[in-house]
């Protein structure tokens, strides 16, 4: 698990961190209950202001991806939905639209895109333990 951030990008640094944590959770690199890197540790590693990490982590808590245990740090939360069905659909559609735009502009065929997307989805869903 390696974080990478770029300053001066169109995505703010805290967003980049939050996105990467979300991705690590989605791919199973960070399992439910596992701790996130400490705020100071990550800030030192990435050479950024610790408040930026605080902001990223608190966004993740708000989105229900991470939970905080007083004095012990931040942990990957059990999957639960904080959004309504329509909001979840809207977010999913937004992400799909981004994929579609890229796929079309990079001239991939429908078969190639759907096969690769399916593979990625299957790999991700395999890592998620079945619902208890």
């Amino acid at each position: 698990m390696k974080f990478r951030i770029v300053a001066g990008s169109s995505t703010s640094i805290y967003r980049q961190i939050a996105d990467q944590v979300a991705r690590f959770v989605a791919t199973g690199d960070l399992a439910v209950g596992e701790p996130l890197p400490s705020i100071r540790g990550l800030a030192k590693e990435l050479l950024i202001n610790p408040n930026t990490v605080v902001k990223a982590y608190s966004d993740l808590v708000r989105d229900g991806i991470v939970e905080t245990q007083a004095g012990r740090g931040f942990f990957v939360a059990k999957r639960r939905q904080v959004y309504s069905k329509s909001e979840r659909l809207r977010r999913l559609d937004e992400a799909i639209q981004g994929l579609v735009n890229q796929a079309v502009s990079l001239d991939f065929s429908l078969d190639e895109v759907s096969q690769r997307t399916l593979d990625a989805l299957q790999a991700a869903y395999q890592n998620i333990s079945p619902k208890q």
Binding site: G8, S12, L47, I48, N49, N51, T52
Partner: peptide, 10 residues
């Protein structure tokens, strides 16, 4: 250096 400010400043 705007990049540096974005990294270290509050």
């Amino acid at each position: 250096m705007l990049d540096d400010v974005e990294r270290v400043a509050d």
